[in-house]
Design a protein around this nucleic acid. Sequence first.
DNA 1: CGGCCACTTGAGCTATTTCAATGATCGTGG
DNA 2: CCACGATCATTGAAATAGCTCAAGTGGCCG
Lengths: 255, 255
Amino acid sequence: MSQEESCIIRHFSHYCVLTDEEKKLLSSLERSPTKCKAGQTLWEEGDEANEFCTLRSGWAYSYRHLENGNRQILEVYLPGDIIGLREFAFSKRMDNVKMIEDGVVCHFPHQHMLDLFRDSLKLTSVMFAISSRQQALLTERLVTLARRSARQKLAHFLHETFLRLRQTNADDTSEFRLPLSQEQLADILGLSPVHISRTFTSLGEDNLIHRERHQIVIPDLDALACEGEFSDCYLTDSMRPLFSPYNQDVAICED
Amino acid sequence: MSQEESCIIRHFSHYCVLTDEEKKLLSSLERSPTKCKAGQTLWEEGDEANEFCTLRSGWAYSYRHLENGNRQILEVYLPGDIIGLREFAFSKRMDNVKMIEDGVVCHFPHQHMLDLFRDSLKLTSVMFAISSRQQALLTERLVTLARRSARQKLAHFLHETFLRLRQTNADDTSEFRLPLSQEQLADILGLSPVHISRTFTSLGEDNLIHRERHQIVIPDLDALACEGEFSDCYLTDSMRPLFSPYNQDVAICED
DNA sequence: CGGCCACTTGAGCTATTTCAATGATCGTGG
DNA sequence: CCACGATCATTGAAATAGCTCAAGTGGCCG
């Protein structure tokens, strides 16, 4: 399997330099790629939880239904992400996962994770790091949901998504495609769809973002960061060598 | 070290039966207990992150400052909890942690976690499970913050806290001490302090909770669950054996 | 006893929601 | 290629949950 093809290896490479051995271990997580259609459900609340998915292409999201008919989107998954990490410790799925657009996912059973734990201290740590990072994303959004205005929420989310995309895609434009409907954005940010619309025009009037269908242009990234009180430390800045000198054999590069 | 004394062992025992060997490994995480005063800061945003803490007694919380002067509390830690798991993968602290009341914490360096990974597949998995559970708590609160009314937020939080306390304390009353000011509750639930007050009286009028200073009585747990749309699956229900048959040597009991 | 702090209560204000109607865009099938 | 229906986005007007400000109450500690 070429490195080009494997999102998961690219994802892990963000955290450390991988040996061929490790790449081989990892690529076993990406067997059996499956095509998924937009809107397709990967699993639902209450389903048996016994595997993870890696998202090779397309976007996906996890969400929860509330009794009043509302819906809350918990996480937006981009290519390279691992889906279902949260439920490693649980027997049942705690939320629903759906594809946003057509894409490809690879399933791997929880058992493989244990093999990983057994076979590679380094990959164990990276897995833990990835889980931590997902948690950091959640935490950041929690703060946003609790305490920020609609403008800030939207600005923050767009900024974050832009950076996440750039981290794996490495193209250097200020433009990206956002395949989310305003209803979906509303369900991410805890707002009503109509208010998303109003907020978009409001941000547009202040030249903070431009939007043409699902194409987003960010004229001034810093200005947007300021509006959304965005600080990227939870995305970038912060990864670090997990191993002390006496563990050189498994040292993680800093790059 | 007697088992009575070690919150962390009691905490881990929730997930599996531990051998003496494992208990010994774990108790190395609880060396050097330190007394902390109410209001004391354990660490601040930006500090070097190179250790975890286990909370042996007292409550603590992590929080974030916003630019507008607001504050958002992210997690409330109860005795037995591990503090700082999120930053395992990061070099800097991403939030502040403070004691709510007098208590005792034990520090252990990140390096010890790696030792744990190396020495025990079982404890590695349990650690992962604990991290997952913390994430589940965050997720649940995220939903609550995004989509529920003030009454639901408060009802949900009280219910959750009650259950968490009962899980480690195992006393079977419907009463508990809540050492949080209304300002702190406001910062947890993304509300204003005055509205916390109003919401308390509102819930009281409907006989959903009674409150005398910091003492909370829940007359009807089911009614409260209903009000807060609370489902305990993310707290209890759901832990499960992590290991397949061919890993019997490290099998986790179901109990 | 006095002062301080946390809580309560009231009144007006604001951001966001809801409801409803209109307009744009997309995919589909003729 | 066009017409149609369906979905998605916009706009306006009225309703509301929760906020802010401000004043009052009560308990607790020195």
